[in-house]
Nucleic acid binder design. Structure first.
Length: 896
RNA sequence: GAGGGAGUGGCGGAAUUGGCAGACGCGCCGGAUUUAAAAUCCGGCGGCCUUCACCGGCCGUGCGGGUUCGAUCCCCGCCUCCCUCACCA
């Protein structure tokens, strides 16, 4: 029988499971390696071939590291709380736990069919009581530290789902997953004070081996800006009166109004305090609390109308008209603390309440947004920064010119804002200072005057941590009658999810847990006083914030993990997952980890030392002009290679395009089908061969056939199937003798192959590693005799990629132990270099011939052989060589 | 609009401290084998020109310049695509 994956794969998978081959324990005699996949949400639709791309990558590394002598921790589990199971529960009238178990069983089976080297003894699900007990335990730690708190906040309420969503889950006024509309509501919610860790979350990125783009995304998300805040005093009465009002040092963020309503003030945040002299007006966000009280009577109607309009606009997509500036004058003026002059206060929606102080000083000369606004409403524009004289000779844009000029009019700020650094002008005591110096000087001045201080501002906001859902972790807290909230004692964890009759919000809009009335009404075990339980549940992110820690000690019943396990296994050495988690899961998990670090519960500052994103696998889809999609098996090409497609049954023409796999596009490839047709080894190999692991790829069945053929060729080096026979015979070409003199070249190829595969694995270069193995197998194919020594390393090289075939061959070679436990083959560096090199010879930079030189040859030999070449001489056309460039082992270039 | 990444045959992709561009695979073409087919094995395949054929020649890594003996790789200026953020003061 020729290579038949179905005859060998289940056998080895069973044996690995039965013998717990990949179960590991803390073993301080060995170096550890912790390889982790981002664990999946077990959806009802099962795996598609995109999931195993990352899983295959970690599995290859995991098996390889193991063969290199590492104690490898490679676990898998389920991020199983979440909305889809809850909705399925409503649909099917089953408990979400039932749905979840069904989906998990399916996922596990699908994953196990691929022969991954997971330690299944460590499998966890975030929905297991023994797991979420510890999620609640960690929550209490955060609560005790004041990092989990309740607040009345404007939330993203999704009426269709009956729950709030995190800011990150909403884009353009819609839930990113389903597209359901989302609106603003003010509700009591649980919040996580992630902002307290903003600085460390940004600075600790530096030491991580993560894709730079991903680190950038996190930096942008956290959004650190350094600047200053400055207090502006409001003049009441609506008339500018040049009299400087008294400053209010340390004014509260958001503004304040004195009892007499004579002086009000507000604070702005700016990254450019050096431009304060250029602030010609101020802008408050429409929701700013001061707006109502400072607006003058003549303007009141217009301002009210604007504020109302802005509020409604915020609910729709406000992105659309972000270019057009709108606003309204309040009729009030503020004193520019630097110039002492009154400047108008406007309301405009380009200032956001949620960032900084919700108020800005507008410097239209040096900020594009302020400039656009000033132009739109005819506000004055003043230049307070001029460009630095550029060094002579350097070209540049219009805003860079001005070498030798002393005038400040070299850039025209009336035309466009000048936002670059420069030298301060028209700025009193700042004149002549560079932007950096002026920034420092102004900040100091503000501090001395009691009008402001240096300030660091982050875009990051606190994390909205509650959801109005059933299928999540209950909050282990009690609300007492006096309005306080106290933790459930640790010894009463876990706080179990109560059974309820329907997984929907109550009629009066309370979360589903409110249906469990007996559960909600309880008593405080410490005092016996009546108490109410929290009816919100935690978001899905909670469980995934610490699962990597549970994996290191999953059965621990006295602690979430032991110190011993933590100190041995952490941090995660390689973490692989989709880029879609760049700023959500990865930021939340880092935040929790840092809190745990501060509590002394973990010993590393960061959880994931090295992280890589696997690319997305896409596939062709087929669509009629009407938009209707068809399954790939239902269409055919009108003629081979024509690129034109039609529906087989109806003949209707369809267009084809490459798209993200989705059910609705009918282009999902199920790994079960691939395993059925080609086997798990081919599936794994193709996932690796499709392209670099971090870029995506187009799934093509032909490609799977290609790697399947390769595995067949490798198989046939060991087994032959005589005509008509049903069983394989050991290939008679395999001989037990030393490598012969005519086999030296192939021996070298073997060593080069081991070298390249090893080097490529170290950088996750799976596709090139496979390509090198193909070269080697091709070279062995068709040889009349095959010394065992040339064959023996091959299954070991192959085993991380195609472990089933490798085990089978390994056993046939007479080994009693598993190849999974075999040592990784070594190469002899001396056999990886050629004695003789083929060197290109160029004439005037064009290759004209090649010469063969010994690796030891000196430059003179290169030159002599190059010039002796007939082809080279012809190309030289009889002219003398002006110069001969010899780069040993690389090239010869003859210049005539 | 800002930031990041990428453009290489019919296709996926190799190759860069600057040294023979296109490894490997898909696809296609031809041959062997076969009653035939499948499978397998062998050979060929960047474009243009020249040639009966061999042998040759020119062009070619998004476009235009530059540095260099030599550029897919470095520099300058563009174009296109992808991703992320999007009035963050």
């Amino acid at each position: 029988m020729p290579y038949d994956p179905h005859a060998i794969e289940p056998k080895w998978q069973e044996r690995w499971l039965r013998e717990k081959t990949f179960s590991v324990q803390v073993d301080r005699s060995k170096p550890k390696y912790y390889v982790l996949d981002m664990f999946p949400y077990p959806s009802g639709s099962g795996l598609h071939v995109g999931h195993p791309k990352g899983y295959t990558a970690t599995d290859v590394i995991s098996r390889w590291k193991r063969m290199q002598g590492f104690n490898v921790l490679h676990p898998m589990g389920w991020d199983a709380f979440g909305l889809p199971a809850e909705r399925a529960a409503v649909r099917e009238n089953l408990h979400p736990a039932v749905i979840t178990k069904r989906n998990v069983d399916n996922f596990r089976k699908q994953i196990q069919r691929l022969g991954f080297a997971y330690d299944w003894e460590r499998e966890v699900s975030t929905t297991d009581v023994e797991y979420y007990k510890w999620t609640q335990w960690i929550f209490l730690k955060l609560f005790e530290k004041g990092l989990a708190y309740q607040a009345q906040v404007a939330v993203n309420w999704c009426p269709a789902l009956g729950t709030v969503l995190a800011n990150e889950e909403v884009q353009d006024g819609k839930y990113v997953e389903t597209g359901d509309p989302v609106e603003k509501r003010s509700m009591r919610q649980w919040m996580m004070k992630i902002t307290a860790y903003a600085e460390r979350l940004i600075s600790d990125l530096d030491g991580l081996d993560w894709p730079e783009s991903l680190k950038e995304m996190q930096r942008h998300w956290i959004g650190k800006s350094c600047g200053a805040e400055a207090t502006f005093t409001v003049q009441s009465g609506g008339k500018p009166s040049g009299a400087p009002a008294s400053a209010m040092p340390g004014a509260a963020v958001g503004g304040s109004v004195s009892a007499a309503n004579a002086t009000a003030s507000f604070t702005v945040f700016t990254t450019r305090p050096d431009t304060l002299f250029g602030a010609t007006y101020c802008v408050l966000a429409p929701e700013h609390p001061l707006v109502a009280s400072i607006t003058a009577s003549p303007q009141r109607a217009a301002v009210d109308a604007y504020v109302t309009a802005a509020k409604n606009k915020a609910e729709r997509d406000r992105m659309a008209d972000s270019k057009e500036k709108t606003g309204a004058f309040t009729g009030a003026f503020a004193i520019n603390p630097a110039t002492g002059k009154p400047i108008p206060i406007w309301v405009a929606d380009y200032v956001l309440l949620g960032y900084g102080t919700g108020a800005i000083m507008a410097v239209p000369g040096h900020d594009v947004r302020d400039h656009a606004f000033a132009k739109a409403f005819g506000l004055p524009i003043v230049q307070v920064v001029k460009p630095v004289a550029s060094p002579a000779g350097s070209g540049g844009s219009a805003n860079d010119v001005g070498a030798g000029g002393t005038s400040a009019a070299i850039v025209d700020v009336q035309q466009a804002a000048f936002c670059a650094d420069g030298v301060a002008v028209n700025s009193g005591f700042l004149d002549g200072k560079s932007t950096a110096d002026a920034t420092t000087a102004m900040t100091q001045w503000l501090e001395q005057q009691g009008l402001g201080r240096a300030r660091v501002q982050y875009k990051l906001r606190d994390w909205l941590f509650s959801r109005q859902r059933y299928w999540g972790e209950p909050f282990p807290v009690l609300h007492l009658e006096d309005g306080t909230t106290v933790p459930v004692p640790y010894d009463q964890l876990p706080l179990l999810l109560p059974p309820i009759d329907e997984y929907k919000p109550t009629a009066d809009g309370q979360p589903p847990l409110a249906r469990a009335t007996e559960w909600v009404k309880t008593t405080d075990p410490r005092t016996g006083k009546p108490a109410l339980r929290e009816t919100n549940t935690m978001p899905q992110w909670a469980g995934s914030c610490w699962y990597y820690l549970r994996f290191i000690d999953p059965k621990n019943i006295t602690a979430p993990w032991s110190k011993e396990a933590e100190s041995y296994w952490m941090p995660v050495d390689l973490y692989v997952g989709g880029v879609e988690h760049a700023v959500l899961h990865l930021l939340y998990a880092r935040f929790w980890h840092k809190v745990l670090f501060d509590l002394g519960l973990v010993t590393t500052k960061e959880p994931f030392q090295k992280l890589r994103n696997q690319g997305m696998i896409v596939a062709a889809s087929f669509q009629e002009a009407s938009g209707k999609y068809h399954y790939p098996e239902d269409v055919e090409e009108t003629a081979p290679g024509s690129g034109q497609w039609r529906v087989k049954a109806s003949g209707v023409a369809v267009s084809t395009q490459i798209e993200k796999m989705s059910k609705s596009r009918y282009n999902v490839v199920n790994p079960d089908d691939v395993v059925r047709d080609y086997g798990a080894d081919s599936m794994r190999l193709y996932e690796c061969f499709i392209g670099p692991m971090e870029s995506g790829g187009v799934w093509q069945t032909n490609g799977v056939e290609g790697v399947y053929r390769f595995l067949e060729r490798a198989w046939r080096l060991f087994f032959i199937t005589p005509k008509g026979a049903t069983t394989d015979l050991w290939n008679p070409a395999i001989v037990d003798r030393a490598i012969g003199p005519d086999e030296k070249e192939i021996e070298k190829l073997l060593h080069k192959t081991i070298q390249k595969v090893t080097a490529d694995l170290a950088v996750l270069g799976f596709n090139t590693a496979i390509s090198q193995m193909m070269v080697y197998v091709n070279a062995l194919t068709g040889r009349e005799t095959l010394p065992r020594a040339l064959l023996e390393p091959l299954p070991r090289l192959l085993s991380p990629f195609a472990p089933h075939l490798a085990e089978e061959v390994w056993a046939a070679l007479g080994n009693k132990t598993l190849i999974a436990d075999a040592p990784w083959p070594a190469f002899d560096p001396a056999l990886c270099v050629d004695d003789e090199l083929e060197i290109a010879v160029q004439v005037n930079g064009k290759v004209r011939d090649t010469i063969k030189v010994l690796i030891t040859a000196d430059q003179a030999v290169y030159q002599r052989l190059a010039l002796a070449s007939e082809k080279v001489q012809r190309a030289m056309e009889g002219k003398p060589a002006k110069k001969v460039i010899v780069v040993p082992k690389k090239i010869v270039n003859v210049i005539v």
